[in-house]
């Protein structure tokens, strides 16, 4: 559905996208996961024909994003990183505008947006600029869907959005998937990654790994432990000098400690007891995608 091949883009001395190859299959929910500045938006702008690659190519449903850009623009539903609706138009006027630009009507494709639009409908006369963050995102998604695109390209749709609206947004993407949409979505939130069929982890314009989120977590090379105590900051400092430590990172209310695979729980318990005088709990855990991402970043 989407074939990105050895694509490259530089701005002066800075290589924003460095030889990236990605294949997205029909019906997939594919996540491009990485921090700001990793090159996500540059890649999106090349896919949407708004930016011309220096090298390589991107082909969407057989259409090249440079040669066949008109065709490409018709089959894409694009939600840019920055809120791109008309703030002075009402909810309904925005939707109508996007439908008209693509020679269609709200009525014709209403079935596609119905589930999402119904929460907006009570506010259809409100100016888009007066909507809350979560509502703006829902409207932007409706506007991207209204011309019945084949492929959805969503650039950081959940940035700046609270955890509940973020969860709702991902539920919407899952439900669109059942309607047959192919979705390519970027996010800096690693927990979002677990909801995708396949993800590419990206940093400094390069792909660190590309696989299903389950497989990426499985490839994590160390044994992982979760340790919690009353003061995790102190705990983290205490663990800092542990010679069997591969890495140690705070994870909310606990600390994730990575060790070599042969290290046993008693060994860590004994070590900790010898250096700290407060209670702690330790248990083995399965790595998540954030553990994996940080490990891959360290290897780079």
């Amino acid at each position: 559905m989407i074939n990105i091949k050895n694509i490259k883009k530089s701005y002066g001395d800075i290589t924003a996208v460095d030889d990236i190859t990605i294949h997205v299959r029909k019906g997939q929910l594919f996540g491009l996961i990485g921090p700001d500045g990793a090159g996500k938006t540059s890649l999106f702008r090349m896919l949407t024909s708004l930016l011309i690659p220096d090298e390589g190519s991107a082909v969407i449903m057989g259409y090249d994003t440079v040669k066949d850009y008109r065709k490409v623009r018709n089959i894409l539903g694009y939600m840019p990183e920055r809120f791109s609706l008309y703030m002075d138009l009402s909810v309904e006027e925005n939707l109508n505008f996007f439908a008209t630009v693509f020679n269609t009507t709200i009525e014709e494709n209403y079935h596609l947006i119905k589930d999402i639009y119904k929460v907006l409908e009570p506010f259809k006369d409100r100016r888009a600029g007066d909507l809350s963050g979560g509502m703006k995102q829902k409207l932007a998604l409706c506007c991207a869907l209204i011309h019945k695109p084949e492929v959805l390209l969503l650039d950081e749709p959940t940035t700046g959005v609270d955890p509940v609206s973020r969860k709702e947004f991902w539920e919407m993407l899952k439900s669109l998937q059942t309607k047959g949409f192919t979705t390519f979505v970027s996010t800096p939130f690693l927990d979002d990654a677990e909801l995708c069929d396949e993800v590419a982890l990206i940093q400094d314009g390069k792909i660190l790994d590309m696989d299903s989120p389950q497989n990426i977590a499985k490839k994590y090379p160390h044994k992982l432990w979760s340790i919690s105590a009353s003061n995790n900051y102190k705990l983290l400092r205490a663990i800092g000098n542990y010679e069997k430590k591969k890495s140690a990172f705070a994870f909310g209310n606990s600390v994730h400690l990575a060790t070599a695979n042969e290290v046993e729980i008693e060994e860590i318990q004994n070590y900790l007891k010898s250096i700290i005088d407060y209670d702690f709990e330790i248990k083995p855990i399965e790595p998540n995608i954030e553990d994996a991402f940080m490990e891959l970043m360290k290897e780079e």
């Binding site: 921090p35 990793a38 700046g160 800096p188 990172f249 991402f293 940080m294 970043m297």
Partner: peptide
């Protein structure tokens, strides 16, 4: 106010070290 929005996971933790 949302100081770490969009920051990578390692730097995000280093930022919290500065807070501490």
């Amino acid at each position: 106010d949302e100081p770490t929005s969009g920051v990578d996971p390692i730097t995000r933790r280093q930022f919290w070290d500065l807070i501490y």
